[in-house]
Amino acid sequence: MLSFLIRRILLAALLILALLTFVFFVIQLAPGDPLQGYADPEMDPQLVEQLRMQFGLDQPVAQQYLSWMRSFLLEFDFGISLAKRRAVRDLVAGALPNTIRLAAWALLVRVLLGVGFGILAAVRRGRAVDVGLSVGALLVYSVPAFWLGVMLLLVFALQLKWLPPGQMVSLDHASLGFAARVWDSARHLMLPVFVLGIGGAAATLRFMRAGMLEVLSQDYVRAARAKGLTERTVILKHALRNALLPVVTLVALSIPALIGGTVVIEHVFSWPGMGKLTIEAISQRDYPVVMATTFLSGVAVVISNLLADITYSLLDPRVRLES
């Protein structure tokens, strides 16, 4: 188990190195010069040259690559945002926790609803509950998230005025007591978490249902019943553990999408997260920020793959020993 972990972690580290290199050279391939957008064409060429030296852009590419890698990996120094004139590290440090907060709750919604209702649909196969859930899941899955978000805002925030129309907290958040602050944050989370989680929950439900149905027809499920185990044990222990295996992969691989791809949701709900940061940076050709966010999305992919591997090996002894 330990050697399995070490191997996977080393592999993950290698992947991150490769990713960094890739990001660096792709940006190098892009036409133009990072300074082009910002330097006034009528600026003193000497001044431009000075700026270039300041940013290290006069050095050979290999040299730039090495120093960039060094500051990136050893100092977590992602450079300075060209548009905002602030350290990229600070911008990311401000946005990443917000996105993680949103993504973590959405993931929870996804797993709980998807797995729970998936099991229910499989166990009640062909009955009203199953048909209702399957049709509902298909509907939810087909509705685009931005549309659903806007509609929910219209209904719950603008018409009914039950929930706030976006942002992470109310303006008077700081002046509230502890319990009121928690409630205020929760109210702001509800709609974006729901919109972000429900689509994934629908997909997970379909996956879970299919996996469960397949497992329920296996010999070992019949054998478990023949042992006189309660139906609850048969379903929630013997069948579930096996049916979860493919779902683990699906869910783990959706984590990067939640971290990097909440762009639309963050926009609809004015959520100051990574998605918003990335979109702004792209439209402003803010290369250091784009590089940092791209890199972080990549890290998210590598880490969730690692998580999937670890979870998988915990669930399935056959994977554990295949070293």
Partner: peptide, 21 residues
Amino acid sequence: LRGREIAMVFQEPASALNPVF
């Protein structure tokens, strides 16, 4: 009654055992 008074063994022993326990 199953497993206590009447027990059963199956044709494919390898698939009658749950692979994850």
